[in-house]
């Protein structure tokens, strides 16, 4: 049984985040792995021991500010305890910014969970928008792999000196359009700007997340992924990095 919890799904789901949850849910079901999907919203307590995988999506500025304050006041300690326990946390776009130290927007600085050593600033200048492909090396994965998706963010995110990016930008902007870094990863905590959504374009990552969340030594049993593989190839072509 995989226990999945979406944080603030009514506020942080602007970019088709449902697609990510649907990939996890269906791929588990096809393998006979039960999935329990819960959600925790504003003001509600998060129990760090009740979940195997936490998901945070993206939201509009106003909604993201509400979540930032709630994380600081209500959920910060629980998030740290969950990460400590090895719970998989996947945070996309706005959710990624919320896992860092802070997000500065004009005169305001939104607090973050501080789970990733990153800071984000909304700079003057265009939003970073377009198809993106990155190369990642994950533990228990078979060598370097490619993730393809779509990015659309006004914030520029910079990693602290000891923080590892999720991957290296092959095409696209990544964290800030300059560093060549995309996302950040610390153990099972992953933040990324890649949506599109991320998992339907990279079904293998959905399986990797489930394997880590369940603490399995071996990869999950393979499925017939002809359509998923074609979708991955299509997203890579769109980003200019054909397989």
């Amino acid at each position: 049984m995989l226990r999945v919890c979406a944080l603030y799904p009514d506020l942080l789901s602007i970019y088709a985040d449902r697609g990510n949850l649907l990939l996890i849910e269906r791929r588990c079901a096809w393998r006979g792995i039960g999935v329990e999907l819960r959600s925790v919203g504003l003001g509600q307590r998060l129990d760090p021991d009740e979940h195997d995988l936490l998901y945070l999506g993206g939201g509009q500025d106003r909604d993201q500010a509400l979540c930032a304050r709630d994380i600081a006041e209500v959920k910060r300690d629980a998030l740290h305890a969950a990460a400590e326990r090895g719970v998989v946390i996947l945070a996309v776009c706005g959710g990624y910014q919320l896992l860092g130290h802070s997000y500065r927007l004009g005169g305001e600085s939104l607090p973050g969970a501080g789970l990733l050593d990153v800071t984000t600033v909304r700079e003057e200048g265009p939003r970073l928008i377009g198809n993106v492909a990155i190369e990642v090396e994950l533990p228990q994965a078979d060598g370097p792999r490619v993730l393809a998706g779509f990015e659309n963010h006004g914030g520029r995110t910079v990693l602290g000196p000891d923080e590892e990016p999720l991957g290296r930008v092959l095409r696209g902007h990544g964290n800030d359009g300059r560093s060549g870094h995309e996302g950040a990863r610390r153990g099972n905590v992953i933040g990324t700007y890649m949506h599109g959504p991320l998992l339907p374009k990279n079904a293998w990552l959905a399986d990797w997340l489930v394997q880590r969340a369940l603490g399995l030594d071996e990869p999950l049993a393979p499925l017939d992924d002809a359509l998923e593989d074609a979708a991955h190839a299509c997203a890579r072509r769109a980003a200019g990095v054909p397989a």
Binding site: G19, L22, L23, R26, P200, K201, D224, A226, L227, E228, A230, A231, A233, C234, A235, A238
Partner: peptide, 23 residues
Amino acid sequence: GTRAPEMAVRMKYAGVPSERIVV
């Protein structure tokens, strides 16, 4: 279309059996 396989994956995860989907 230019993103045909991604539409096919959407159909599959919405519950359309794979054998009814053509790309």
